[in-house]
Design a protein around this nucleic acid. Structure first.
Lengths: 329, 329
DNA sequence: ATGAAAGCGCTAACAC
DNA sequence: GTGTTAGCGCTTTCAT
């Protein structure tokens, strides 16, 4: 049992109100009294009880983060940005993994709300907003990252997916490629669809023919990329391919290497998401780099501002990406 | 303001005690009453207030995780294991990043304890146990992972570092290498020292001469690996090198590639930590693979068992590693 | 410039 | 089989 505010008050010869006020700097306390209280606190090694504080004030100073895959480097890097901002503001971070499962996602959201988190950052696996909307209560500000369910009018931080992919495919076209494969992620996600749109638009704006058979839907994991590359190689005559996420890029290249396909001579590749590893692959990978930590920081920033002053209107931030040219295209 | 247990009780025509008992299944309630209470709860969409529960019961069902670098894939993968186990047991996960800073680490520990977490999982950056021991209170079970401060007699989950590196260096020796470089991590960490010992022992047990100039201490980050490789190449005649963590491995190889050093012909390499990426590097990387998710799961398991039944004696688990042979040696 | 005290929502000992 | 109620440790209103 740790010491309570009452003990501190007694030992310092003041009321609990005064102790509370010196802790929170919430009303004036004479310097002499203040110092005495502080001394007693350090002497007793007093730490305020968090649960009591929360129960009374209805403020937890913790935010909940719901993620589809915490071991994916993209998200991890976002977490780092979030943690940084939160730490600086004295907030705690609660993390939940969903494995892209909407039911699990809903469970985590509910639990976080029962904990009265100050806000939630959510990379949702829901296709439509209605699936999760009933579980998002009004009092808990929520900001979405990376993907956004259809029909959601919410605060949202992501990147310019369409523009990014448009640029990458444009690069392929400039290089003279005519058959450009596309390996996309889980199809219901907005991020996937935006990336697809970037691909389509780039093809359409060129004199090339859009060929649906060059598009392969993966599962956003290693396996999906591997299989997609396999299918694309067997069934089409592509000379270039764009892969819409990091894990799938590794999978696709793994297959290509197994088949002794030369990159970029036989097949040129551009992947999504950067990582130090991409510098030492064979060949070094050209990728679209997302400002991952910034996504996290911005999300945390918006969320905290919402929890202080409720939003009048929702905001979206689409951060710019960067095409990093190495040797795979 | 969400509905309270009192409202539920009133609407169901029972006492708060009964409601509490149906929620927690903590004493018998007649089926009819039980059903009525449940109906009212769903009708009102009632969720117990977490803070009140915690304040009263002194149980949070959340555990705190303190990590040096949440964006390092090794830790991320450990987190996944932890989350999995915790989720299954209905526990929450609070995460804190320290950037290898002991002061930050202490802050996080203190905060977690103020929150009365049920336990802490700690990858400490402290060299000696005394640095953090004063902040670890008796009531909060703590299990250490990956590294352990000197002089700590605590629950601990890690891998057989010494044995792992011994095996890797042995492999180099079997291959005929005589000048084997070693790039180690932050020197105060137990994991670093154990890996160093594996290197030393392997050299000593062979007919080779231990040459301290072949050992270079990095910072466990990309930069450290890069610089270490640079120094080793300039100043020594190594034909092989062991790199004691994943980020440094990438750094070292990046430098080697810049210098057009051929791997493994000019320099053979074995790294620490596996990742899908390692399959597609140039050349595919031979590495020591740690059972990362298992480390997390085991840590969570031990921690929860401790929080139910205090430990009589501390336990250590050193999980086995695996040398994965690809083409870099 | 400070204190007294109510009450946040829950659990559990005690009572019947 | 269920109810009454004290009290967990804090914040904050009202008083002085």
């Amino acid at each position: 049992m740790s010491t309570s505010i009452r003990e501190v008050a007694r030992k310092a010869g003041v009321s609990t109100a005064t102790v509370s006020h010196v802790i929170n700097e919430t009303r004036f306390v004479a310097e002499k009294t203040r110092q005495r209280v502080i001394d007693v606190m350090t002497e007793l090694d007093y730490t305020p009880n968090f649960a009591a504080k929360t129960l009374r004030s209805q403020k937890t100073f913790t935010i909940g983060l719901v993620l589809p895959d915490i071991s994916n480097h993209f998200f991890t890097s976002v977490v780092k940005g979030i943690e940084q901002h939160l730490d600086q503001k004295g907030y705690q971070l609660l993390v939940g993994n969903t494995d892209e499962n909407v039911d699990v996602e809903i469970e985590k959201i509910k639990t976080f709300q029962a904990q009265q988190v100050s806000g939630i950052i959510l990379a949702s696996s829901a296709e439509n907003y209605e699936e999760i909307e009933p579980y998002l209560n009004q009092e808990t500000p929520t900001v979405f990252i990376d993907r956004i369910p259809h029909g959601a009018n919410v605060d949202y931080i992501a990147v310019e997916n369409e523009k990014a992919v448009y640029g990458a495919v444009q690069r392929f076209i400039d290089l003279g490629h005519q058959q450009i494969g596309m390996i996309t992620g889980i199809s219901k996600l907005s991020s996937t669809q935006e990336r697809m749109n970037g691909y389509r638009r780039a093809i359409e704006h060129s004199q090339l023919q859009l060929d649906e058979s060059l598009i392969y839907t993966g599962d956003s994991k290693f396996e999906g990329g591997y299989k997609a590359a396999q299918q694309l190689l067997k069934n089409t005559g592509i000379t270039a391919m764009f892969v819409a996420n990091n894990l799938m890029t590794i999978g696709a290249i793994t297959y290509l290497k197994e088949q002794k396909v030369k990159i970029p001579e036989d097949i040129a590749i551009i992947g999504f998401d950067d990582y130090e590893w991409a510098k030492i692959t064979d060949p070094p990978l050209s990728v679209i780099k997302q400002p991952t930590e910034e996504i996290g920081e911005k999300a945390a920033e918006i969320l905290l501002s919402r929890s202080h002053v409720p939003a009048l209107e929702t905001e979206s931030f689409l951060l710019p990406t960067k095409l990093i040219q190495r040797s795979s295209c």
